[in-house]
């Protein structure tokens, strides 16, 4: 299992286009992925799941990944939260 804490850089928080895109990104990996914000845990492969997090700009999200492609998924998710084009 791999985990990392990322901070939401998107002006409008984690919904709308960033949510739609990170969901697609997570779906491209076979690993189990969890996004955790406080006591709320969500499956980021579902857009609805991501919205339950209510993650505003600056929110720290704990990402937990376990599965065959966890290393690649970790890299890709970390890079996603650095993206400037979605801000």
């Amino acid at each position: 299992m791999k985990s990392v804490i990322v901070s939401v850089p998107f002006e409008e928080g984690l919904h709308a286009r960033p949510a739609s895109e990170v969901s697609k990104l997570c779906q491209s990996f076979s690993s189990d992925i969890k996004f955790i914000n406080g006591d709320i845990e969500a499956n980021p492969k579902s857009t609805l799941g991501l919205l339950t997090l209510g993650a505003t700009k600056g929110t720290e999200i704990k990402v937990e990944i376990s599965g065959d492609d966890e290393a690649e998924a970790l890299k890709a998710i970390e890079a996603f939260f650095q993206r400037k084009d979605l801000i």
């Binding site: 409008e12 928080g13 709320i40 609805l48 919205l51 339950t52 209510g54 993650a55 505003t56």
Partner: peptide, 13 residues
Amino acid sequence: HLKILAKLSRRLM
């Protein structure tokens, strides 16, 4: 709207 979305989504799950 993020707050409204979050509350609604939790229930819609």
